[in-house]
Design a binder for these strands. Structure first.
Lengths: 346, 346
DNA sequence: CTGAAAGCGCTTACAG
DNA sequence: CTGAAAGCGCTTACAG
């Protein structure tokens, strides 16, 4: 027994042909139960595993998915948006449950991430995660689609976008949060987050925010909008809040388009001696693990990442099988913590 | 052009044999530069990628590594220790830089994780991450070693352990932190974390803690040690602190063997109306991202996860190439934040 | 510097 | 229910 055992070794030990071994190991009913059992026992005993490369090559199917996490070129080398991390667990486990292996790669938005994985037959399909400029990634998505690559992405469900997405109902999330803030008696709500096609998720959250405002008969004041916050980092949130104060606009609440932005904003508020939530309410979006450990604990919008991961994998697998699939929107839900304060009156 | 292009297609277009195409694409100097360039250009134009399965099968080398994150069976389905997450980025990037693909899988400690990946020729080696009972995993490690599987693990560097490890200098980290606490005037330091061979990392931290105590001429009081904290979760930290208080022992500091434990302990302290750090100092270990957002921000021990990831990959690759490798210990460093308070005197 | 040929370890029609 | 044979798409001695 030098090197790994092959199906020929098993065949020899079992006294059958190699083809029968192959069938038995795939549990083909055309092999008698007895033989099947016997072969499987020998395989186990010899510690035999079907060679994945040979099998994939022959079947033209890798039984592997690739998870591509793409980040802004600007972002720090070691920084991963903690939000995606929560999804990672769910995706990994769902793949395992389905018998698929998962390749993972972190890509700069600038790189040629659309290539490789499926072309080289490494994976049967791609799962795409990552913020970053949507208008940049859209072209890549189109190319992927043109090449017939199977892929699903997490993100805003946008009309006429290439491929299919699973995303949170960002409009609803934005609306719910602003309604909550209004219910708390807040009237001048600053919004931090770029609201353009570059950041469709932030845009939707802003749209929901505006809808809630208008429904309450309140104006949408552009002076309260920090529109140049495209990246989701604490630094950007910090600066956004400083800008807001530098402009001299009055506000009694801050709704940040992500938790990281909100946490940065809270720190700026603290540095400026503004009390949260006594003077200003702060709200975020995502419910990353550290949201509950912020000071004060952050009120935010949860997205069901467990379900999201499952849907992403399931949709991709369906697509690979040639079944029809559609984009899906997951409901958003508020988590009320202390950063917005309590209702002022009954 | 139906289906993906193969090397035969390229050969046809270039007017050479398929073998020459294969050589040219691997950049073999035995093919004339001209021909090489021409073939590479055609390949690019046809969007050709070498089939990884065929290549791996033929070369008997997958150019793929597998990252196995193993967790306690007890831990929540979606919970991943945030500490490992920081390492993930570094590992992924290092693999990419070396031209290796990375498979990822989360395994329950109870599963047969030692099998599969290398036997099925999916990966050339394994990277093992995860706390959990070391005495349980050790047997698996031995089996891996007996099978000739290449692997490296993150964790305590233990005398006579199977395989090689990259880990933090936990003894040093424990010593530094206790010295810091002592320097702050604390004398009754509770330690949360199981100190046995089941948790060699916690054990080393405890050993360092004890060494610092003894060096200062202070006793190591077993009453101050919560020894049944084997899992690294906030809940366990919370309970540990409650136990400590229930026992009625006095303490002016808590050194938790991990940040998650420390954060749980701080919450219990807060619930009990004990002020941190005014009445009790709290320290952790790991420096997970949320440590700085805890209330108060947590003083802890940083481990260089970027370097750790790089070393893990580098060691594994060396091992695969048959070069000699050794376990390595990374230095530990304190991050002083507010949870321990300031020096009482000058 | 290039080509013809063998073979990596499987899976799967095809024939019996 | 089982076996002999072809072939998945490469890489690499071997020969020229």
């Amino acid at each position: 027994m030098k090197g790994k055992a092959t199906s020929f070794d098993i065949a020899y030990h079992a006294g059958v042909s190699q083809s029968t071994v192959s069938r038995a190991l795939r549990n083909s009913p055309s092999v008698s139960l007895d033989t099947r059992r016997r072969i499987q026992a020998i395989a186990k005993q010899l510690n035999y595993k079907v060679d994945k490369n040979a099998s994939s090559l022959r079947r033209q199917h890798a039984t592997t998915l690739a998870l591509l996490l793409f980040e802004d070129p600007t972002s720090d080398d070691s920084l991963i948006n903690p939000f995606f991390l929560s999804m990672l667990g769910s995706i990994t486990r769902t793949c395992a449950r389905q018998g698929y292996d998962l390749l993972i790669s972190f890509q700069q938005l600038s790189e040629d991430w659309h290539a490789d994985y499926q072309d080289a037959h490494k994976a049967d399909g791609l799962i795409l995660l990552g913020y970053g400029d949507y208008l940049v990634s859209r072209d890549r998505l189109r190319k992927l689609e043109a090449q017939g690559t199977h892929f699903v992405r997490w993100g805003a469900v946008v009309e006429g976008q290439p491929g299919i997405s699973v995303g949170c109902d960002n409009v609803q999330g934005g609306r719910l949060m602003t309604e909550h803030l209004l219910g708390l008696g807040r009237r001048r709500i600053a919004f931090i987050g770029n609201a353009s096609a570059h950041c469709p998720e932030f845009l939707d959250r802003y749209l929901g925010h505006g809808a809630a405002l208008r429904a309450a008969g309140l104006p949408v004041d552009p002076a309260l909008h920090v529109d140049d916050a495209t990246d989701s980092t604490e630094e950007v949130g910090y600066r956004a809040l400083c800008d807001l104060r530098a402009r001299g606009v009055a506000f009694d609440a801050v709704f940040a388009a992500s938790d990281l932005l909100a946490i940065g904003a809270m720190r700026a508020l603290d540095d400026a001696g503004v009390r949260v939530p006594a003077e200003v309410s702060v709200a975020g979006f995502d419910d990353i693990p550290m949201a509950r450990f912020a000071t004060p604990p952050l009120t935010t919008v949860v997205q069901n990442t467990k379900l999201a991961g499952e849907l992403l994998v399931e949709r991709l697998l369906k697509q690979i099988r040639g079944e029809p699939v559609e984009s899906t929107m997951l409901p958003a839900e508020l988590v009320i913590r202390r950063s917005c304060g309590a209702r002022s009156a009954a």
